[in-house]
Design a protein around this nucleic acid. Structure first.
Lengths: 151, 151
DNA sequence: TGTTTAAATGAAAGTTATTTTTGTTTATAC
DNA sequence: GTATAAACAAAAATAACTTTCATTTAAACA
């Protein structure tokens, strides 16, 4: 994520271009993986000198609202965030070992909305689809390998 | 959910058949909608005389682990639970207005695993798919209607 | 280039869903 | 019946966020 790209995204969202927002985006963009709010905070604090954790939460919420950042679901009741400037409708493949995220273009859910409408008259407005697994690199490291989240 | 069905499920899971577990299942089975742990607690306390909230959490976790109960994702960082004894692979359509849940059999994700394997060598182990919308009944109530969660 | 003003931020305190701990009770195998 | 491992209650603790309010700053405009 180039700084100019970050500026453009913020201008498009009618958000002020501030060093904190740019730095949150730069930090997330540097990873191909998802991070928690606190992890983002720890990485950008040294760069910015000082930033409050609530500010990080606010920025991530704004970006998630605007769908520049995707929320990742895990069962530890912590929210994780992944910068994904791809605005086409798509989904994500999440590595359970190293947290890497890959885009998945295929989305065969169009038929589902029709089925629901036909069967009970319901209306589909959105869906959550997250594909979990082990990425190619972690697979190749084999059973002996240990990912970022391994015990 | 008949009591005998609950007993069978617990025996299958090698869990002791206790009044609390049966009551949690009965309470959830009475609804076609999802509930939070605290909501379950408030409904079963009068019946059981007394039960601790941590016990409700433990029971729901066990049942979710065994996939007798499904976790429902919402953005309020509260976990919701839905009793779904249907053990076939399927997904859920969630009404944003009244919390009703319908099963959705269709799941076209088989192709996705192949795509990921081919492209980057990754291995898919699970996926989260939740379809959000407004159920037929709430749709028919029209704009003037107000669901359980409406302001 | 100043000035203005709404938006952004820091710091501290607050909230709340969920978990842990420890001592007691109970379902079940024998 | 009795032994024993599992279940449970109660209270306290944890941790991820959120709110509040006083201060600062980006950006529109004079």
């Amino acid at each position: 994520m180039e700084q100019e790209q970050g500026r453009e995204i913020l201008r498009r969202l009618r958000l002020k271009v501030t060093p904190r927002r740019l730095e949150v985006m730069r930090c997330l963009g540097e990873e191909q993986a998802y991070l928690s709010a606190e992890e983002v905070w720890n990485r950008i604090r040294p760069v910015l000198g000082s930033i409050g954790l609530p500010t990080v939460y606010r920025i991530l919420d704004e970006l998630a609202e605007a769908q520049v950042v995707t929320r990742i679901f895990r069962s530890d009741r912590t929210q994780y965030y992944f910068l994904c400037p791809n605005q086409e409708h798509h989904h994500h493949f999440i590595c359970e070992s190293c947290r890497r995220v890959e885009d998945v273009d295929r989305c065969n859910l169009d038929g589902v909305a029709g089925e629901i409408a036909r069967r009970s008259g319901g209306l589909v407005t959105s869906h959550i689809l997250q594909i979990n697994g082990v990425c190619g690199e972690c697979s190749r490291l084999g059973e002996g390998g240990r990912g970022r989240d391994a015990a």
